[in-house]
Design a protein around this nucleic acid. Structure first.
Lengths: 185, 185
DNA sequence: CAATTTCTAGAACGACTGTTCCATGAAGTC
DNA sequence: GACTTCATGGAACAGTCGTTCTAGAAATTG
């Protein structure tokens, strides 16, 4: 009955390599052929593993989101408060090794704003992931409305600072502002 | 000697229409043909007026940046302080009529992060425009470092809130957070 | 061994891309 | 009128795109 078994590990390895490639390329210019060339396989192989290009991009974004959440989640301790969680998130983001990933994140985010149907899941989930973490960091005793307002504000501020940092590269000015903000929490 | 004079007004009208079209489309998918069809002209006409596609996109972004700056500049009074200027900027941005333009702004911004050479001017200027306005709103007596830090922080926060608003559409939550922030200034 | 399924590659297809060429009409000066 | 420059459109170019087809190698079961 059964023939050659499906190699899920290989697909996962290809996907990881594809995400790495995506962080170094312009997202809008990703194509079957460019990814295939970077991974050393044929376009047919990618089609076989991922189906359509749209499905492959969705898989890449899912994997990207996993990286973003897993990376920042591990840094915040179990019972950290709002200020500690916010600082951990900023420290993680400001590391230059995260920049390619974060640049890809903002590129996709911006594109999703103009075509929400295409990357609807990405847009929706990434928005709530960090906010939920910061809301939880305030403990269960805080008024829900206040907690939500605070979380929204902290995420917005840190994201805006991150955008500034990535765009300008002016580490001194942005880190100065970030430090002043984090200290005020 | 001289033949038919160059019609600069017509070029400007075409450019304005092209920007309008760009706000309603996905930026990365703009093409000679799509713009030409939307404007009711041939691609040859566009080529004649703008040269290459890259040059046309640069012209569109220049015009877009003019709109963004002119629109928000007029709202802030002559001698407004930091809090007033920040509130004026937020009120202008949160208006749903600005959303298509702002979505295009963030889409280009995200793309420029990944290919800084392509839209270098856009990335550099837009970053400093609003920050400079908010730095000036603090008056000449404030310590320059403090003024720069404050301006960076306000721009980051409002931009982050705006990104949240455009992505989630959750006006109640974001406006609530924005109001709390603006009141604290 | 045969049978079956996965995996991979190469070639090709139609659609779309930016750009160029050619031809024609429009608006000026002489 | 002739002449020159700008304006416009249609056709065609080579290149890239996502996708499909065909075919063979690899890995499993019986």
């Amino acid at each position: 009955m059964a023939g050659r078994p499906i190699d899920h590990e290989h697909r996962a390895a290809l996907l990881d390599a594809a995400v790495d490639h995506a962080t170094e390329q312009v997202f809008a210019e990703l194509s079957w052929r460019s990814v295939a060339a970077a991974l050393g396989v044929s376009t047919t192989t990618l089609v076989h593993h991922f189906g359509t290009k749209e499905q492959m991009l969705a898989a890449i974004l899912d994997r990207l989101r996993e990286r973003l959440i897993a990376g920042s989640r591990d840094l915040a301790g179990e019972h950290a408060d709002l200020a500690t969680t916010a600082r951990a998130f900023w420290t993680w983001s400001a590391d230059e090794r995260r920049w390619p990933t974060l640049r890809l994140f903002f590129a996709v985010y911006g594109q999703a704003l103009q075509s929400p149907d295409a990357h609807a899941g990405f847009l929706g989930q990434v928005g709530s992931d960090w906010t939920a973490a910061l809301r939880a960091a305030q403990g269960p005793d805080v008024d829900p409305d206040l907690a939500s307002r605070r979380a929204t504000l902290v995420v917005a501020t840190l994201r805006g600072l991150l955008l500034d940092l990535l765009a300008s590269g002016d580490r001194a000015r942005v880190e100065d502002a970030a430090e002043a903000y984090l200290a005020s929490l």
